[in-house]
């Protein structure tokens, strides 16, 4: 035994390290278990979406439209506002700097890298999560706590089909569409701001730079990324609201847990796509 371990300070350090390791191991195991459960829920939900695509269309499709209106159309004003702000911030911070070093020809490339590849899908997903996702966890968690899921089962209605599938499709489509809108608004507002800043950047140059910076893979990955964000966040939201027995007092905790896990999932997807971008 070393001298350090035998002394009181050494022993307390050892205990501290052990407790840290145990806590870390517990977090890792809990995290893996959560991933496993969400994975199983994802398979069930996607399986139900495919196998029951044509079941009860007159019931489920209005619910999908309702979700698109809720998570997409009604969020257009806030998406427009954030797009404007984002364009101002990015151009405000970068164009002046680029013009100082005579590199305004990189503005379009910068906008594509920052907005199309990164911020557009992420901001759209986070807006939907904040404005609709949290409300959905509360709504589903309350329905679960009040026994409405058992009521659906008692009527022979598949709760995944009735409650999850419309939200999965609605939120995924909404995030995809909001991503497109936020990108367009940001790119246009970015040019507007550079114009206001009296930067020597004419509109045709700006949009030509953007067109030149865009590759076909950007369109493919943009679609895949926004769909991945939408699918995963909506499934995590529905999982926490529905997939496990919950009491009314646990709904608020489930909501905060959902937000944290959705943000982690979005960052993980983003990291994955950065790797793919580098490889392609």
């Amino acid at each position: 035994m070393s001298r350090g371990e035998s002394s009181p300070t050494g022993r307390s350090r050892l205990v501290w390290f052990r407790s840290i390791n145990i806590s870390l191991a517990r977090y890792v195991i809990q995290g893996l278990e959560t991933i496993q459960r969400i994975g199983a829920f994802t398979l069930i939900a996607l399986g139900t979406t495919i196998t029951k695509w044509n079941v009860a269309r007159h019931v489920v499709r209005p619910l999908i439209r309702e979700q698109i209106a809720r998570a997409g159309v009604r969020l257009l004003p806030i998406v427009g506002f954030l797009g404007l702000a984002l364009g101002f911030v990015i151009v405000g911070q970068t164009v002046a700097l680029l013009s100082r070093v005579g590199a305004t020809n990189l503005t379009g490339t910068l906008m594509v890298s920052a907005v199309v590849r990164e911020l557009g899908p992420l901001v759209a997903a986070l807006i939907v999560l904040a404005r609709v996702g949290t409300a959905t966890v509360i709504e589903l968690g309350t329905a679960r706590a009040m026994g409405e899921v058992e009521a659906l089962e008692a009527l022979g209605i598949d709760p995944i089909h009735y409650l999850v599938v419309p939200r999965l499709i609605g939120m995924t489509l909404s995030i995809f569409m909001l991503t497109v809108y936020i990108i367009i608004v940001t790119l246009v507002s970015g040019f507007g701001f550079s114009f206001l800043q009296s930067v020597s950047l004419i509109s045709s140059d700006y949009f030509q730079q953007i067109a030149a910076a865009l590759r076909w893979t950007d369109f493919v990955f943009l679609g895949l990324k926004s769909v991945a964000y939408g699918t995963l966040t909506s499934l995590i939201i529905c999982y926490h609201g529905l997939a496990q027995p919950i009491r009314l007092e646990e709904v608020s905790e489930a909501t905060t847990r959902t937000v944290a896990q959705c943000v982690i999932a979005c960052v993980a997807i983003d990291a994955l796509f950065i790797l793919v971008y580098l490889l392609v």
Partner: peptide, 16 residues
């Protein structure tokens, strides 16, 4: 299961 009907306790667990 469609051959069974269930009326739950309380407010009947209606879909609000």
């Amino acid at each position: 299961r469609r051959r069974l009907g269930v009326v739950f306790e309380g407010s009947g667990r209606l879909f609000h």
